[in-house]
């Protein structure tokens, strides 16, 4: 446990001492702020029939952040250590491979979530300055954060996996973006393919992240969605572990 916590601390620390960490935080804040403004302007002009959180996520900027931030956060996890050689010093300490993988994942996920924290201020801002106090529902905010967390966990684990495959950070980021985007674009199949009764449509509904996020932002935390994200996260962590272990395959 001790080496795990030590590693998580270092992973988090390395995010906050590097310029790239602050660039990510700044970019996320900028894009989220922009979405907030867009949502606000929409609110001012006409009555809103969907929760504010849903309007917020329906914005393209939200997805831009969701899809781009994790690969950039995770690209360094393994690739940089392999490139600089510190991977060798790390892997020759009495720390298990699984601890290393889990620590890198946890560190990156904590950093990712910390970039979203200022979002919590938005509901308060809304409440403070709007007449209609029922506008922001705590459940919806909680659901949104659960969704962001689950989505983040999946994409961070995917990013870790991509990073473990190479020693080049750029390649790691590209791989993660391509995989991630591919996974996300499955959502659009539900829009493109005309819905017809049958298992195909049902299956597509289940992998549609846009659908998932709509539920989350409405405050509905569906266990099916939770299971979907958690199992995929576990899968990618498992694959990462196997890549890390492959060094010791004969």
């Amino acid at each position: 446990m001790q080496p795990f916590l030590t590693l998580v601390r270092r992973e988090l620390g390395s995010c906050y001492v590097s310029l790239i960490g602050y660039v990510i935080v700044a970019a996320v804040q900028f894009l989220l702020g922009l979405s907030f403004v867009i949502v606000l302007r929409a609110l001012v002009n006409k009555p809103f029939d969907v929760p504010v959180t849903e309007a917020f996520f329906n914005n393209g900027l939200f997805w831009l952040v969701m899809l781009l931030a994790p690969p950039i956060i995770t690209m360094r996890t393994f690739a940089l250590e392999k490139y600089s050689g510190t991977y060798e010093t790390l892997m020759t300490t009495p720390v298990g491979d699984f601890q290393v993988v889990l620590a890198k994942f946890t560190g990156a996920l904590c950093f990712f979530m910390s970039a979203w924290l200022p979002l919590l201020a938005y509901p308060f801002l809304l409440k403070r300055f709007s007449v209609d106090l029922s506008l922001v529902d705590t459940g919806a905010v909680g659901g949104t954060f659960t969704g962001i967390f689950l989505f983040g966990a999946l994409y961070i684990s995917l990013g870790c996996f991509a990073s473990s495959l190479t020693r080049n950070q750029i390649i790691a980021a590209m791989l993660a973006i391509v995989f991630g985007l591919g996974l996300f674009l499955l959502s659009y199949l539900t829009f493109i393919i005309p819905p017809k009764p049958g298992w195909q449509s049902a299956a597509l509904q289940h992998v549609s992240m846009i659908e998932h996020m709509r539920d989350f932002t409405r405050g509905t935390v569906d266990t099916r969605h939770v299971a979907y994200y958690l199992s995929l996260t576990a899968l990618f962590l498992f694959l990462t572990l196997k890549v890390v272990e492959s060094r010791r395959w004969k």
Binding site: P3, G13, S14, V17, T86, E88, T89, P94
Partner: peptide
């Protein structure tokens, strides 16, 4: 105690901080 070729270090860390990190990592 192993020092690999090229002596890779976490360049962004401070000396004391790094040594402490390594010591904790080694249990």
């Amino acid at each position: 105690g192993y020092m690999p070729e090229g002596n890779p270090l976490h360049l962004e860390m401070r000396v004391r901080e790094y040594l402490k990190f390594r010591a904790r990592l080694k249990g």
